[in-house]
């Protein structure tokens, strides 16, 4: 088997940015995985073998989208080396759980909220809106793009043996450190929201300091969120109810 061309590898990596484009409840990431791997499969196979390879790769698969590139790179290497299709299938089956769990813990539960909090805190202490946005977007995407590139490259390099790279990267340990930074920023945000003069940062809401009643209610709401967690509060649903009640109250004669 010939080694994968640079164009095939680059195309697969770029297409992996749309890997969730056809996410569905039947094959989940399967369609997107097959779509992103097409440049590689087209180089390696032709005719009926190509259609069979495509069929194998649109089967059910799921992972965190940023880490799915690791499985994609590994699958590309395995296919280019002419590995047994059953070996490729078993590899994807084994790797999808860790890629989903680690990605969710590192990115969705730690990196994203922490970088968002950085932007929010920057705004509340006086940064211009564009700067606050930049302080969120730039660090977030540095981490995001690094993770994608690292994963795809690791998969391409190590193929079937990529699991040890994932273990050595200690993503769970990194998530813990990011979470700690997030907690500190969350505390800063809460402190600022309770004390800052609204006229200072919330230009659209200027009008003086908060009444103690609202601070007490906010403390109660915080405790509710802390104790009940997401089960006690679906933010949009609760606010939807609140909005409807408010509108009815306002509209009442």
């Amino acid at each position: 088997m010939s080694p994968l061309s640079r164009a095939s590898r680059l195309s697969a990596f770029l297409l992996s940015f749309t890997i969730q484009g056809s996410w569905n409840y039947r094959t989940m990431l399967g369609g997107g995985f097959g779509f992103a791997l097409l440049p590689v499969l087209r180089q390696v196979f032709a005719g009926p073998k190509l259609m069979d390879a495509v069929r194998r790769h649109v089967e059910h698969f799921n992972a965190h989208p940023y880490l799915a590139g690791l499985a994609l790179g590994a699958a590309a290497k395995l296919e280019s080396e002419g590995s047994d299709p059953e070996v490729v299938r078993r590899f994807k089956l084994a790797i999808k759980g860790p890629l989903g769990g680690l990605g969710d813990a590192l990115v969705w539960a730690a990196w994203l909220p922490t970088t968002v909090l950085l932007g929010l805190v920057a705004y509340l202490v006086g940064a211009a809106p564009w700067l606050a946005v930049a302080l969120f977007l730039v660090p977030y995407n540095l981490g995001h793009l690094t993770l994608r590139m690292w994963g795809f490259r690791a998969g391409l390099t190590w193929g079937h043996d990529v699991a040890h790279v994932l273990r050595d990267a200690a993503l769970g340990h990194r998530a813990e450190w990011v979470s700690r930074a997030g907690v500190l920023l969350l505390g800063v945000l809460a402190g600022l929201l309770l004390t800052i003069d609204p006229a200072r940062a919330m230009v659209a809401l200027r009008g003086g300091a908060l009444e103690p009643l609202w601070i007490v209610l906010s403390a109660g709401a915080f405790a509710l969120g802390l104790l009940g967690g997401a089960r006690a509060w679906r933010p949009a649903a609760m606010v939807a109810v609140g909005t409807v009640v408010s509108i009815l109250t306002v509209a009442a004669p």
Binding site: V183, L186, A190, W214, L217, G229
Partner: peptide
């Protein structure tokens, strides 16, 4: 402002738990 803050406080609590 206070009304909006009360709602936001719930999210802050949930995020701390998370």
């Amino acid at each position: 402002t206070g009304l909006l803050l009360v709602g936001a406080a719930v999210s802050v609590g949930i995020l701390l738990q998370s």
